[in-house]
Amino acid sequence: MKDKLYSKDLSLWYGKKQALKNVDFSFKDKSITAFIGPSGCGKSTYLRCFNRMNDLIATVNIEGEVVYNGIDINGKDADPVEIRKKIGMVFQQPNPLPKSIYENVAYGPKIAGIKKKKTLNDIVEKSLRKAAIWNEVKDELKKSALALSGGQQQRICLARTLAIEPEIILMDEPCSALDPIATAKIEQTMLDLKKDYTIVIVTHNIQQAARISDQTAFMLLGELVEHGTTKEMFEKPINTETSDYINGRYG
């Protein structure tokens, strides 16, 4: 059986500059896959291919396939709006909308056409609980999400993503702007969510990849150098570049 989500021979250019080179990778269901690699290696760009976020950049050119549920998501028949409802994303910088906590979480369901107050209330509570922030904010749902701390904002963003009930959650360095305590909370939440969701995380933090991921992939200069189970990758990497990077000897 084919995997639910994979890329085949995926290349991407920003104008003339090639950022991804023939990346083949297949994601395991209901597990956490981490992408590591130095800045500019293309791992965030790769992640953004899966919910067509690169559409927003005019100069991008994509070749190859990104397949989700058997459909090429860059194909003519694919609707980016529908894809993004199934493949959610948490960004590097916490980016709550300038609205209340409640409105942030209810945003996705609302634009999807859910109007009933009761249903929305239930979704908001369920999502905030799953993101492990319900107890902190349940009494101030009307407060602006921008007034929260960075760590809380990021968990609101996670809750907001969960509210649209995606199958896959893409996380683009979700903890890079957060302190260690907030990071630990997000990581714990990810481990809890793993049983229901397929999670892909891009991270600069090698220890983070080691702590939470089941598979790890190492990228360098737009190429996928090596991938495998996290245990294998960290204990006996095949490639010297991988082991250099993991052991902190790389740029």
Partner: peptide, 18 residues
């Protein structure tokens, strides 16, 4: 208007007009 706001909205399955 910060690009992050628009990205957030698109990533949640909003159309351009929404």
């Amino acid at each position: 208007v910060p690009r992050q706001y628009k990205e957030a909205s698109y990533a949640l399955g909003a159309t351009k007009w929404q």
